[in-house]
Amino acid sequence: MSDNDNKEFEPTIIGYFCNWCTYAAADVAGSSRLQYPHNVRAIRVMCSGSVDPLYVLRALFSGADGVLIAGCRPGDCHYISGNYKERRRILVLKTILETLGMESDRVWLRWVGASESPKFAATMNEVTAAIKKLGPNPIGNAWAI
């Protein structure tokens, strides 16, 4: 990427996408030629419920500007209830970050079903715009933590 300071800040966002729903939506979004920002680097996981808050923290501490976890809509989880359990964990994580003033808004959880490619693209737009607004993740450059 160019180091040109005048260039608009382009965040790097780690995406944890569920294999069954969100990743399917991502595929359809692509094949429908929906245009959406490039900032999310997706890791395809089997279930949103397998995303450990530690993975989220690790991404933020390593310098990701945001993290998006996306999975099946509530009730649609291929593994019955993984997304419900994830919802609680991410709630705890975001509460901790919020309490400590650590920009909990950098962590996103979204439900995107397999037939929701427009929502997938919209979510990409939404999360990218929101993280852009937040600016670079200060943890990314903090060497002393």
């Binding site: 991502a26 595929d27 692509g30 245009q35 959406y36 490039h38």
Partner: peptide
Amino acid sequence: VNLREEVAWPNQENPVAATDKARAL
């Protein structure tokens, strides 16, 4: 790595960013 649906097609106007993303993936 899904270069086509995940990188090239959604970034038809932005080859530089697409190449970056492809490298990362």
